[in-house]
């Protein structure tokens, strides 16, 4: 990458988790529900360090869909962070977001869609978008670091402005494939 290229935002390849954190603050996100993913680890650390955010580690991602429904009932804005495999765990619980018209922004780090090593990640990784869309979620992808902040911003805005589940999928092309020591 040409470091002097004017169209390249310096450091975007590394600091996109911080840009997401800034957006969570901008949009007054008070509850962060998550099942950890390596791709989200830096963002999770930022949220844990923030006393105004209630960060809840879930045993399964569908708990987060229910939790954010409760948060909204009580006036808190929330966001759900997860890996693409976790989307499969959310399917039926997303029915609630529909019938209640609950804002439900999800930020999903992808596995299985670009250079994956682990065969078990392929099925869900390539079904993630279709599954979310089948449940009526507005899905946008970000496949370059520069795309992430505007896409997450749009995802959060569409959730809270139009009362529905929305998702940003952050491509494995950005995060990199875990190689289990077999580079």
């Amino acid at each position: 990458m040409d470091r002097d290229a004017p169209e390249t935002r310096p450091g975007a390849a590394e600091d996109w988790p911080d840009r997401i954190y800034d957006l969570l603050k901008l949009h007054n996100i008070r509850q962060v529900a998550l099942v950890p993913d390596a791709g989200h680890s830096r963002l999770i650390r930022r949220c844990l360090a923030d006393n105004t955010m209630k960060v809840v580690t879930l045993t399964t991602e569908e708990e987060g869909v229910a939790m954010l429904a409760g948060a909204w009932l009580g006036g808190d804005r929330g966001v759900l962070l997860m890996q693409s495999s976790g989307v499969g765990n959310c399917i039926n619980m997303l029915s609630l977001s529909h019938i209640h018209r609950t804002p439900m922004p999800m930020i999903v780090t992808m596995r299985g869609d670009f250079g994956e090593f682990n065969p078990a990640q392929i099925s869900m990784g390539n079904a993630t978008q279709a599954v979310l869309e089948a449940m009526g979620t507005l899905v946008k992808r970000a496949d370059t670091p520069e795309d992430i902040a505007p896409t997450v911003d749009a995802t959060i805005r569409m959730a809270f402005n139009t009362f529905r589940p929305t998702a940003t999928l952050i491509g494995q092309r950005i995060i990199g494939a875990k190689t289990f020591g077999k580079d």
Binding site: R30, Q31, A33, K54, V56, E63, G64, A66, M67, L68, A69, G70, A71, W72, L73, G74, G75, D76, G78
Partner: peptide, 10 residues
């Protein structure tokens, strides 16, 4: 879990 989200919010 809906109860948890609500309890944390209120």
């Amino acid at each position: 879990m809906i109860g948890l989200g609500l309890a944390l919010a209120q």
